[in-house]
Design a protein around this nucleic acid. Sequence first.
DNA 1: CACTCGTAGGTTATTACATCA
DNA 2: CCTGATGTAATAACCTACGAG
Length: 341
Amino acid sequence: MELALSLGGDTPKSFLFLEKSSSSSSLHEKLMDSSKDLGFCMGLGKCSEDKSRKNKQRRSQDLKEGHESKGSSDPLLQLDLLPFSTVSRDTSSQLHFPWLTENIAGEPGPAGKVLDINRRQLVAEETEEGAALSSPNSAISTFQVNFPIYRNENKLLGKRECEGDHVERWGNSSSRASDEEDGSARKKLRLTKEQSAFLEESFKEHNTLNPKQKLALAKQLNLRPRQVEVWFQNRRARTKLKQTEVDCEYLKKCCETLTEENKRLQKELQELRALKSSQPFYMQLPATTLTMCPSCERVVTATSSAAAASAAAAANTMLSLAKPEPFPFSPAQVQAPQAAS
DNA sequence: CACTCGTAGGTTATTACATCA
DNA sequence: CCTGATGTAATAACCTACGAG
């Protein structure tokens, strides 16, 4: 992936090539198309508390976004039913989503384990909360349910079960002693390579998302819209940081080049002055003298008054001919930060 | 003017990985 | 070679401020 360099303005100019008009075959169009064919999302739960503060509103809004078609209450649980064809039709040629395909294909892959874990999670939820959640034997067990379960903004429910979820889904196995002690500790989910790659592809096309695109991406990748939003925010920040580094490096090299050039010109100037002070006699002849035309390199005659001007012109030409060397570093293209692998 | 929404910029917390004793 | 402690880079998640509508 490449980034364009822009010295003259803010970052958006640097990504004009990313803002190519999205044709009907663009990734987002595909996303939007495929989103029409998504199964459905289903939310169960109760309202979150007050939304007086702005950021709480934001988070609440996020929760609502993730389940926007599911009524007025903030759901606790999202059931995402993603038909296999949804993914395979549009993206399987480029990217593979094992957490989707394996699960839906009914094979005992990782997602199947996730399903089992989530089923146990649901049971735990029912036991703990007494919430009117689906029975573990209900229809949901037929489908993928590999979301962490949220309550009151972003706090996770069923820590222990979710931990298993993470281990299975995200491949993380490191211990989280603090989580066991403090339920308020925020969870950080590592995105899979496939998810990151898909997000990168989306970012290539649009470095910002409209709500529809965000929702479609979230559904496509089995993420919350908030996660997609945050990913794009962070991605833009990383891009800008990288761009700043490149710009800084470029300006540094420019500065070095100009400094060298300045030194060289100063040295030439000194030499010319020295030459002038020790001019041979014939150079100071007042009447008619011979001088070299700097442009055509012909020897011409000049009067005394013109001779000085001609000499000055020759000196100037010498200086102007000492053009700075072309800048060897082309900053037009730099490598974008790659997703951690 | 108040409000909502999206974004930028900065920060924090978590994770993966490398290094070393 | 294995293991645990430690440091570090990457990055997900969060917070705050700001501007546009």
